[in-house]
Simulated scan of single mutants.
Amino acid sequence: TRTLHLLNAGGCLPQEASIFVNFDPSVFTDRAIVDKALRDMRLVLHEAGIDPRRIVCEVTEQKSASQETLYSFVEALRANGFRIAVDDYGADESDINRIKELRPDIVKFDANWITQLMESGAGFALLTTMVTSFESQGIRTVFEGIEEGWQLELAEKSGASMVQGYVLARPELASTSLRVFGKSVQAPAAGEGKTIAAASPAPVASARPTKAFGRKVTP
């Protein structure tokens, strides 16, 4: 699935687009497995014409054999020129420690946690403070699970770098012309079904009748 995702990205996406790829740390506990996976990935990137610096490796929540093994795996990803993202951040103590130890380039905030915080002024203030703290450390932020226009407006107000969710687009097969990606060439079906976009001017209708705000990006 990683190979298909990367080949599709190489054929579909503009050169400036980042490509997010999931990695389950519990799978990569043996150095031989890590080396083979990364070797195969480098070959696919070369074939697809993708600069490794466009790759963002999402480290998921699954447990690794040990913290040392996890850190070694993340450093191997970095050594290949990939960026690191911590997925499903929720401000638990374990999540905070994970940020300190892994020093990621990007933090993806858990969708359920974001939804809860956005429901109150105090929660939104905490969310904004955390985004500001990460940005001051050079860590970009992604809000996951953004499905309504009012959530998109709050994400923008908080200073989040990027958003991901149905308010932007839903998973679908790639168009045969691929005009949606800014190209008009033939390519296979789209990859992992995620849309992650940075804010860019264009109106989105609010789900709440008293508001009309936010920005929408077509990848």
Results as ranks from 00 to 15, higher is better:
70 L>D: 04
184 S>W: 10
40 D>L: 03
33 I>D: 11
54 R>H: 02
100 K>W: 11
58 E>M: 09
80 N>M: 08
167 V>K: 10
211 K>H: 05
194 K>W: 09
167 V>C: 12
10 G>M: 14
26 S>T: 02
66 S>P: 04
60 T>W: 07
111 A>P: 08
101 E>K: 11
185 V>Q: 13
169 A>K: 09
193 G>S: 12
212 A>G: 14
77 L>C: 06
46 H>V: 03
158 S>T: 02
209 P>W: 12
38 L>V: 00
186 Q>K: 13
182 G>S: 09
98 R>Y: 06
5 H>Y: 10
91 A>P: 00
211 K>T: 12
213 F>M: 08
121 G>V: 06
127 L>M: 00
38 L>H: 03
190 A>M: 04
168 L>E: 04
120 S>P: 04
59 V>W: 08
41 M>I: 12
192 E>I: 10
139 I>Y: 05
125 A>D: 12
205 A>L: 14
160 A>G: 11
8 N>L: 06
16 E>N: 04
157 K>D: 05
136 S>M: 10
161 S>G: 10
24 D>F: 03
206 S>F: 05
73 F>K: 01
71 Y>C: 14
202 A>P: 07
148 E>S: 14
210 T>N: 10
32 A>G: 08
98 R>C: 13
214 G>H: 01
77 L>M: 11
164 Q>R: 07
199 A>F: 01
217 V>P: 02
206 S>K: 07
96 I>H: 10
217 V>L: 04
97 N>W: 07
38 L>T: 04
119 E>T: 08
104 P>E: 02
125 A>T: 15
12 C>V: 00
54 R>L: 01
195 T>Y: 03
216 K>W: 12
155 A>H: 10
150 W>L: 09
51 D>L: 06
4 L>N: 15
76 A>V: 06
119 E>P: 01
66 S>V: 02
180 V>T: 15
155 A>I: 01
125 A>I: 12
136 S>L: 07
83 R>A: 10
70 L>G: 02
18 S>L: 15
69 T>M: 02
188 P>K: 11
146 I>T: 01
97 N>Y: 00
102 L>K: 06
113 W>H: 09
172 E>T: 12
86 V>P: 03
190 A>G: 09
1 T>K: 11
76 A>H: 13
196 I>Q: 00
126 L>G: 09
84 I>K: 03
164 Q>N: 09
101 E>V: 01
137 Q>E: 06
97 N>G: 10
129 T>K: 15
193 G>F: 00
47 E>R: 15
107 V>N: 05
75 E>C: 05
116 Q>P: 09
205 A>M: 15
53 R>C: 15
48 A>L: 04
139 I>P: 04
34 V>T: 05
203 P>T: 05
16 E>F: 01
10 G>W: 01
64 S>K: 11
102 L>G: 12
46 H>Y: 13
214 G>P: 06
12 C>I: 10
77 L>G: 04
52 P>F: 05
42 R>Q: 15
188 P>S: 00
178 L>A: 15
50 I>R: 02
22 N>Y: 12
210 T>Q: 14
153 E>N: 11
143 F>S: 08
123 G>K: 07
103 R>F: 00
109 F>H: 11
27 V>Q: 03
89 Y>T: 03
154 L>G: 13
109 F>T: 05
